[in-house]
């Protein structure tokens, strides 16, 4: 029986889709059979981040409306044969799917896959309710900014209210140099405020932008963010992995910045 994980944040633009793509790909690299579902109906994104936008025939709405079988809508990844994507519909809106339908879909995919990752839309409306309906656990993504952390707190409350008790936090886009200067909250600060367990800290890394441009998730690469994502995958599987030392990149940036300050 597979596990259904929803990736959510409340606030938009904090890296839900990037996280879904990287964690999903990482789990597939670790030998798991994984399907990623883009639940953001009307704003399809996960397909371009995964580099699979040219292969879409059917989508999530087609599946729940029985226009096709699940297998027909699943797109096989370019690099990993045990990784699939169920893309979202671009022309419909959130009301095209109900929480009951999502629950049923998750239940069916559970038979076939080890991990089902749901990329949740921003906000706390219908799309969010659909995405969490069938989930066993949640990864809450936030950045160390006041708006993102506040929204994450709201999301954590709603997840609790919906009896999703296994909720873990990913602090994304952390800049160690700014934390050191006292100009950015540290991951410890964020954890203290939100009072949930941390599962990963992803540094702000320009390699993420480059890999997203190319439509190839960064996970597994030597880049700090790639390593951080792989560690998150291992922790999802229950492994104890020490946290990365994010200092190195910092000193480089600092040196770089210092040149300009002069």
């Amino acid at each position: 029986m597979g596990e259904v994980i929803v990736v959510t944040s409340g606030k938009g633009g904090v890296g839900k889709t990037t996280t879904t793509a990287n964690v999903g790909t990482g789990l597939a690299m670790l030998g798991k059979k994984v399907v990623l579902i883009d639940t953001d109906i009307g704003l399809r994104n996960l397909d371009v981040v995964m580099g699979l936008e040219n292969r879409i025939v059917y989508n999530l709405v087609d599946v729940v409306e029985n226009n096709c079988r699940i297998k027909q809508a699943l797109i096989k990844d370019k690099r990993y044969p045990n990784l699939y994507l169920l893309p979202s519909a671009q022309t419909k809106d959130k009301s095209a799917v109900s929480p009951e339908q999502m629950k049923k879909l998750a239940g069916e995919l559970r038979e076939e896959f080890d991990y089902i990752l749901l990329d949740c839309p921003a906000g706390i409306e219908q799309g969010f309710k659909n995405a969490i309906a069938g989930a066993d656990r949640a990864l809450v993504v936030t950045t160390p900014e006041v708006s993102a952390v506040r929204d994450a707190d709201r999301i954590i409350g709603l997840l609790e209210a919906n009896e999703i008790s296994r909720t873990h936090l990913i602090v994304n886009r952390l800049r160690t140099d700014m934390v050191k200067e006292g100009n950015m909250m540290s991951s410890d600060d964020v954890v203290e405020i939100l009072a949930i367990d941390l599962i990963g800290v992803v540094p702000d890394d320009e390699q993420i932008v480059i890999s997203t441009n190319n439509g190839e998730p960064l996970v597994g690469s030597e880049a700090k963010a790639g390593q951080a994502y792989m560690n998150i995958c291992k922790r999802v599987l229950g492994e104890e992995v020490p946290y990365l030392d994010l200092e190195e990149t910092t000193s480089f940036f600092k040196k770089f910045a210092a040149i300009f300050k002069k």
């Binding site: 506040r150 934390v179 950015m184 909250m185 600060d189 203290e192 405020i193």
Partner: peptide, 15 residues
């Protein structure tokens, strides 16, 4: 007080 401390305190009150 650093800006990260200010952020943290403001967030605590807001939350």
């Amino acid at each position: 007080e650093s800006s990260s401390d200010i952020a943290k305190n403001r967030l605590k009150v807001a939350i």
